[in-house]
Each structure stands twice: as C-alpha cells, then as structure tokens.
Design a protein around this nucleic acid. Structure first.
Lengths: 211, 211
DNA sequence: ACCCATTGCAAACGTAAGTTTCAAACATCC
DNA sequence: GGATGTTTGAAACTTACGTTTGCAATGGGT
C-alpha cells in the first residue's frame, strides 16, 4: 500500500535530517524532496510539522520505553543488585539493543533527544513529559536507594547534572568524535565513549550528598 | 552622543532577549522595538543579525577572558596549588565577579553560552573558537597535570563531559531552578547550585583515567 | 464496470523575517 | 552658518517557510 510507504519514507527522512540540522532548520521542502514525496504529504498524513516531529519521537521512543521497562522490571526483583552504574547501563544497553544494534540510528536518535531538550520546541517537551513522564519517575524511584544519604535536593540537582552530561554528549556526538579524532589521532569507538560517559556520570552522581 | 546610546541599547536588549528565547527565535523587530530604536539601526550599526550576535558575545567575553587570564597567571606561579576543583572555581569566580557580581546578568550570559553551543549558529562557534581558542588551550594545559594518569583521550572526553554538564545547567538555569523549587519546595541559592555543579564536575573529572 | 474514499500532485496563499532604500534630521568642521 | 558626513525613520523589497487548495490518479468494494 502506498500510504504506509509514504509515511515511513517521510519519517525516515525526517529522523535523519532533524538529527543533522535541528527542527527549525529543516524545512518541509527538504524533508519531502529527500523522501521523494510531495510537499503536501506531510500536512496530509501528519497534520502539521509539529505533529511530524512528535511522530518521529514516538516511533523511536515507544519501543525503547517498553524495553527499558522490561529491564527495570527484572532489576526490581533483586533490589540488592541496584547500583548507580548498573542503572545507567540499563539505558545505554536499551538504546543500543532495541533498534537492532544500529549504531547510526542510535547516535542519530541521541542527537534528537538532545535537541528535544535544547531547541525551543515547547510542544515537544510537553509531549515527552506527558507520554514518558511515568518512566522517568520510576527510574528516579530506583535511583534513590542507590544513593544513600542524598537529600531530595541532592538527588534533583545531581541527576540533572548527569542528564546534562548525557544530553550534551548526545547532541554533539558526531562533532565531539570528530574533534577527538582531530585532537588525539584516535577514532574512539562508540562503546568506549559510552563507557567513559557512564563512568563520569556514575562518579558524579555518587558524590551527590552535599558537603 | 546618540550613536553610542543606540548601540548600547541594542546590545542590552539583544543580550536579554537572546538569553530568554534563543537567537533564531528573537527577531530584529523585537530587539529594536524593545530597545526603542529603529528597525534599520541593527543593520546600520552592526551590519547584520549575525554580527550583532557576535557583538553581544564580544562585549561580555572580552573582559571575562582578561580576568580569567589574570587569575590563571597567578595560579601558574604556584604549580603545586593547582587542583581540578581550584581550576573550576577560577571560572565560576570570574563569571561572578567580572561584571559587578550581577547575578542576573551572569545567569543570562550563562544561558547565552549554552545556546552558543546548542543552537545551530556555526558562525558563532567559529567566532568563539577563533577569538577564544587560546585561553581554552591554556586552561587545558593547566588541567592536565592536575589529572595524573589521564591519557590525551581521557582528558578530551572527560573535559567535554564536564563542559556539557556546565553548559546544560547554564542553558536551563532558570527552568531547572523552577523545577527544583516545584520538586523539593526549596529555592536553591545560586551559590549552592554552583557548588554542587563544581563538585559534580570535579569528581567526574578526577575519575578520568580510563580503567 | 462503476463508485467513492483515499492518496498524490502542482500551484498558490499568507506570513514573518532579514535586509535595503532614500529622504529627513542631526552633528561636525571649516 | 553653510557644506558635509553621520545617524535615524518609515516604508518597501526579497525570500523562505508552513499551510491550503483544487484537481487528478488510484484502487478496493459492490
């Protein structure tokens, strides 16, 4: 059926282009011509550009959240095994596994997640916190006992610091990797970067108790 | 002289508005009407919107860099005193002190610095790395001996993680503070946030050596 | 074979933005 | 104090965008 194909092609093109340039900087004309469909197709199938942006996120996030929930479920059954680092690794593992270990797609979507925080798309932040707020809270509830001695304030600020580290790295993933290669002559493998990032966040988080 | 006044009023208005909404989201019409000057004044005095953006950064960054250089100079004379945390505190102290301990202006400009990384303004990133790349390198040279055992790769990635933490917190400073107040009922003082941030970055950085 | 809802397409519309224009107001220097 | 260069002001210009429109093509159900 032609419909499905058009919708998918738009989503594929939009995902890549948004990740490369950002939302506002990617015009519907660029998306539709890349996808090889008519300009009006976006408004016909999705209603608006905003709805297209949300659809791109939904297509990626829904399976991801389901997978993370599944992994956290297993964790909850053995509360003693919960450490900060293990919790962080749930996320990185899930992102990597859930879409067929496709590193390109994963890094592209990391950038999208970063942009979602970063670019002024209030509708998108609303959509995300509305649809995915629950899993955020669940994650927070698991994190709390892994950081004994941390007050609510400690927890809030340090999780957001860690979030910021991840978001920034995601948003600038390719740029950073290019800079690193320029700098050190080494092309750091993705897994290496994820490991370093996890270590960094875990040690920052673990020092969460203030003073 | 009317010229100086117009230029200053444009810069003042632009600094605040850019920090609030971002660069692309702030039109010249909004800037000029807020500043109480004619629409054409921006193009007359600065040449273009891009040049205005750069001028906003230049007005803030030039004194800041001078101050940071002065502080680093004193540091270099006593190499044994250089710790990661002390180096980080050079930056926060300088941002706070250099423009008259004006917390509002400092937080506004923090957001601008975040946006500079975050929003797609290639010209701005080029401008910054061209004009302020030297002090970056100087800072890196001081940081290196404070992190014994770290390879060049370690250093690159972990400093950029720390940078990301700071940038993200800066970019979303007001939003985060509002969320924290909502969450915990406490209105965290600026100095407190800076302290926590410094601690977080320092402990992440100090674990920089990879395995 | 025909009908009709769905989809595709080219073109136009409305809007908001950065920039340019050109005459008027102003300041400066001889 | 008049000529000259600088700054301001209102308006128009140009461009790019998201969206809408009207019509043609399509294809499955009766």
């Amino acid at each position: 059926m032609a419909q499905k194909e058009t919708v998918e092609r738009i989503l594929d093109a939009a995902e890549v282009l948004f990740a490369e340039r950002g939302f506002a900087e990617t015009s519907l004309r660029t998306i539709t011509s890349t996808a090889g469909v008519n300009l009006a197709a976006v408004n016909y199938h999705f209603g608006s550009k905003k709805a297209l942006i949300q659809a791109v996120f939904e297509r990626f996030l829904d399976p991801l959240v389901e997978d993370i929930n599944y992994r956290l479920e297993k964790f909850s059954q053995d509360p003693e095994s919960i450490t900060v680092e293990a919790l962080l690794r749930v996320l990185s593992a899930s992102v990597y596994e859930v879409h067929g270990r496709n590193t390109n797609r994963a890094t592209a979507f990391m950038r999208l997640l970063g942009l979602a925080y970063t670019q002024s798309q209030a509708h998108l932040r609303n959509y995300i916190s509305e649809h995915y707020g629950e899993i955020f809270q669940r994650y927070g509830r698991l994190l709390k006992p892994a950081l004994p001695g941390a007050t609510a304030e400690d927890l809030f600020w340090h999780t957001h610091f860690a979030l910021g580290t991840a978001i920034f790295t995601m948003s600038n993933f390719d740029a950073l990797r290019a800079m690193a290669e320029n700098d050190t002559g080494q092309r750091t493998p993705v897994n290496d970067i994820v490991d370093r990032l996890t270590t960094f966040m875990a040690s920052g988080l673990s020092n969460a108790s203030h003073d």
